[in-house]
């Protein structure tokens, strides 16, 4: 018990000291200019959405069957994908950070691929792997009569594919920063690897895990390219919010703007709910 407390509190204390120091360090004045421009680059487009919005039609636009179905599907699939990211990406990050394997560096490059690839390419790759004539898809169809594209499962697979690297990168970084000292001490005190992992490693990297989880969830919510190429688009089954926004824009700009704002609100909620731990993790 005391072991856990010490492990998780030691870095917090250090961090507080860091913060006190930061107040004394003055920022070069020129830095404000690019900082403000950078902020505007992010903030102004969102402001543009707000200006464009048709507030009187907003309630009607946001409560249409399609909008509600898409919001629900987006939240459900993003949650399912995030859980998958944690279950699979967590151990993957641990292996990458602590494993002693030849070729680990090459393995890491592969894991980072979805960060660099355009999502559409990821969707195509998934389609050729799990699609009707794909390597795995054909086998699934012949053996079980199961086809993956056009199902909600396909949406979850697409989201997991694009989001997992975010979790792996955050968590691996946290694991490396935390180092192995506390684990080593726990081991000398007679703790088994499993107990050390549960009582020392997990509490130590919890902020990193949290920030990774938030990033992964956010990436899942915004997923568009891989979903549209791999899963298709059908209300209630595969039509997530970004897909609906893209389609609405064809005929109804006001509807597209309203749904975009809905996504902005969801995104802000995600950031606000997770913020305290999230920023700690990024420090």
């Amino acid at each position: 018990m005391t072991l856990t407390d010490d492990a998780s509190q030691a870095p917090t204390a250090e961090r507080r000291q860091d913060r006190r120091h930061e107040r004394d360090v003055a920022l070069p004045r020129w830095m404000w200019v690019p900082a403000v421009v950078g902020f505007l680059v992010i903030a102004l487009p969102v402001l543009g959405l707000l200006v464009e919005a048709d507030w009187r039609r907003m309630p009607e636009l946001l409560t249409s069957d399609a909008a509600l179905a898409a919001l629900r599907l987006s939240l459900e699939t993003a949650a399912a994908s995030t859980v998958l990211c944690i279950l699979l990406g967590g151990p993957l990050a641990a292996v990458l950070a602590r494993g002693r394997l030849p070729g680990l560096r090459a393995l890491r490059s592969v894991v980072l691929l979805p960060l660099v690839l355009p999502p559409v390419v990821g969707g195509l790759a998934l389609l050729y792997l799990v699609g009707a004539r794909g390597l795995v898809g054909e086998g699934l169809r012949l053996a079980f009569g199961v086809t993956v594209p056009f199902t909600t499962v396909a949406v979850v697979i697409a989201q997991t594919f694009v989001a997992m690297p975010f979790l792996v990168v955050s968590l691996e970084g946290a694991l490396r920063t935390a180092g192995e000292r506390y684990e080593a001490v726990a081991a000398t005190l007679g703790a088994s690897p499993a107990l050390t992992f549960r009582r020392v490693t997990v509490p130590l990297v919890l902020p990193g895990l949290m920030s990774g989880t938030v990033l992964a969830f956010a990436r899942c919510l915004g997923e568009f390219g891989a979903t549209i190429t791999f899963a298709g688009n059908l209300q209630g089954t595969t039509q997530t919010l970004p897909l609906l926004v893209y389609l609405q824009r064809e005929t109804d700009d006001a509807g597209a703007v309203a749904l975009s704002l809905l996504l902005v609100v969801v995104a802000i909620l995600v950031i606000v709910v997770a913020r305290p731990r999230n920023t700690e993790g990024l420090r």
Partner: peptide, 19 residues
Amino acid sequence: PVSQETDVKSVLGKVSSGN
């Protein structure tokens, strides 16, 4: 339909790829 694609070439692709 199993999917309502965003453009006609995507519909064609879903058929030509066998999906």
